[in-house]
């Protein structure tokens, strides 16, 4: 496993692994000869709302996949609450508290809303085959508690009435809510939201902003948003990281980002024209 070269501990600079809920250290990802993400370091402090943005093709999704464990980085390491999770498989990361939603909603369509949430409790439940078949008291209690917890979560995201509905029959907005409820069922420390406002109108986006902070405060976790739409992110994030063509070009508060020359260029300047060419 590759790693950053050890550096002398400088006074006043705490080790980012210790102070952040999640820390990605010098991540590089190559697909064959293509460098999709180039030496990007990234941190999610505890109880924060941060975002990762960038124009199409910036490497956001690839980077995101490294965080969730779908890809193994070519170089670099990922730490969750001080533990190295670079090679931990996705399901274990989920159990450790890294929950996500999907850009293109990926619910279990033919399961009810309640079952969807309960699937995500898998790693917290213990009962095995025998106790399930015999329906031992422990298993029954566990199931009951899980079901209650699932309903609570559905209430929390505002679709308490939909518990018995098949996920596929929910409205688009409710499906997004269900995805969040499902992710919260993992009792995450970090919630990764992949383009959560896609397809929302401005009012819904506004509500969404409030919702993000409510989740953060009530569930005591950090939120990472991935977006390509700047306007949404500016309102909701505490800090923003900008990727462009695999490189980290800026990191800072929304105000900083707004005034950053490179970000403006990435969004409006050269990349814009090239995309224009491609579309033509």
């Amino acid at each position: 496993m590759t790693q950053a070269p050890p550096r002398p501990e400088t006074a006043g600079t705490p080790d980012p692994v210790d102070v952040n809920a999640l820390y990605a250290d010098h991540i590089t990802i190559r697909f064959g000869g293509l460098v999709a993400v180039n030496d990007v370091s990234f941190a999610i402090p505890p109880r924060s709302v941060v975002s990762l943005i960038g124009p199409n093709g910036a490497g956001k999704t690839t980077f995101f996949n490294v965080l969730t464990g779908l890809y193994e980085p070519t170089e670099g390491a990922v730490f969750l609450e001080g533990r190295d999770i670079t090679v931990v498989p996705p399901h274990r990361r989920a159990a450790m508290g890294l929950a996500r939603t999907f850009q293109n909603i990926r619910l279990f369509n033919l399961m009810t809303a309640e079952e969807n949430v309960m699937v995500a409790m898998h790693s917290h439940l213990r009962s095995g085959i025998m106790s399930t078949v015999l329906r031992l008291p422990g298993q029954r209690r566990e199931e009951r508690e899980a079901r209650d917890a699932a309903r609570e979560l559905l209430e929390f995201v505002g679709i308490g009435k939909a518990e018995g509905e098949l996920a596929r029959n929910l409205s688009y907005g409710d499906q997004r809510r269900l995805e969040v409820a499902r992710a919260l069922a993992l009792r995450p420390k970090i919630l990764l939201l992949d383009e959560p406002t896609a397809g929302m109108n401005p009012q819904e986006s506004e509500l969404f902003n409030q919702f993000v902070y409510r989740v953060r405060d009530e569930k005591d976790l950090s939120v990472l948003l991935i977006e390509h739409d700047m306007s949404v992110i500016m309102k909701v994030s505490e800090r923003i990281t900008v990727l462009d063509r695999g490189n980290l070009i800026a990191e800072g508060t929304p105000d900083d980002i707004r005034n950053n020359q490179q970000v403006i260029e990435a969004y409006l300047g050269k990349t814009g024209t090239r995309e224009g060419r491609r579309r033509a």
Binding site: R92, A94, R100, F102, R106, L110, V119, S123, L186
Partner: peptide, 14 residues
């Protein structure tokens, strides 16, 4: 059966 990838992301050890 429905979505392997989503299941693993929800903590189900495939």
């Amino acid at each position: 059966r429905e979505d392997e990838l989503a299941a693993s992301m929800m903590g189900v050890p495939l």
